[in-house]
């Protein structure tokens, strides 16, 4: 990989294995994300991109391999303090359907170590909703009353609500119209550049990849098949990557599995 080794990467996955029964999903995945950079993971459906994100957060326990966050093994030390550094947008939104939208967004600000007064938490929630292109009047609706794309954006607002250092986005623009996708791409870029956050984004949308990535990694067959700066994407010479980014049915990746 093309990274200098001086400061420890914010996230480092070292030979991570994970199988579900006979389904061997991750088979020695190595990945390193420098602090304050934006990494985009691409790869076919079902190759284990979401599993990789969840492994870093400790939601899924890898069978083998090491994961380091900020130089320290993930899972060592205080779990609350560890998780407080992260924001995560789940692929399916994962909004709490018993709570109104603003309480979803402000969830972290209403309890625990980051607790704020209720009106302040609400104001922050409304500000974050605005940043993902949602008007204040959705604040008091229930998640089930929103469209799929709106739910996704509420999930995004919740992920960034507490200004985390490390943000994971699992398909942030899936289900959004092109204009809204552009807004979200800009937002992710802004969070990395202005707030210095480290981002790891999964997407299938190649225009998103080019808009938000510093580095790109392609997951295939349980390992990182290719990784490098986004500028090298088109001259990688890697047949798998070429097939993937051009969306060809013909190539080394079998379309029917």
């Amino acid at each position: 990989m093309t990274q200098d080794q001086s400061p420890p990467p914010m996230i480092k996955m070292d030979g991570v294995y994970k199988a579900f029964g006979s389904n061997r999903v991750l088979r020695g995945m190595n990945l390193s994300i420098p602090r304050g950079s934006s990494m985009v993971i691409i790869g076919g459906s079902g190759t284990g991109k979401s599993v990789a994100l969840k492994s870093v957060l400790g939601l899924i326990k890898p069978d083998a391999g090491e994961i380091y966050v900020d130089g320290k093994p993930a899972g060592s030390g205080d779990r609350d303090a560890f998780l407080a550094r992260f924001g995560m947008l789940f692929q399916g939104g994962a909004l709490f359907d018993s709570l109104p939208v603003w309480q979803n967004v402000a969830f972290r600000l209403q309890r625990g170590s980051l607790k704020r007064p209720a009106d302040e938490a609400r104001a922050i929630a409304i500000e974050k909703l605005r940043r993902v292109g949602l008007k204040p009047d959705v604040a008091d609706r229930l998640p089930a009353e929103l469209s799929g794309g709106m739910q996704k954006r509420v999930g995004l607002a919740r992920a960034i609500a507490a200004d985390p250092e490390i943000i994971f986005f699992d398909e942030p623009t899936t289900g959004l119209d092109p204009i809204m996708s552009g807004v979200i791409n800009d937002l992710i870029r802004e969070i990395v550049v202005e707030m210095g956050a480290t981002a790891m984004t999964i997407t299938h949308d190649m225009s998103s990849v080019r808009a938000i990535a510093d580095n790109v990694a392609m997951l295939h067959d349980g390992v990182i098949q290719w990784a490098g700066p986004v500028a090298d994407l088109d001259q990688s010479g890697d047949p798998y990557l070429d097939q993937f980014i051009h969306g060809r049915a013909e190539g080394p990746i079998e379309a029917v599995r």
């Binding site: 969840k54 957060l57 609350d80 998780l83 924001g87 995560m88 994962a94 972290r108 625990g112």
Partner: peptide, 8 residues
């Protein structure tokens, strides 16, 4: 999972 990531 979302609860856990929100330190709850």
């Amino acid at each position: 999972d979302a609860l856990v990531t929100l330190s709850t």
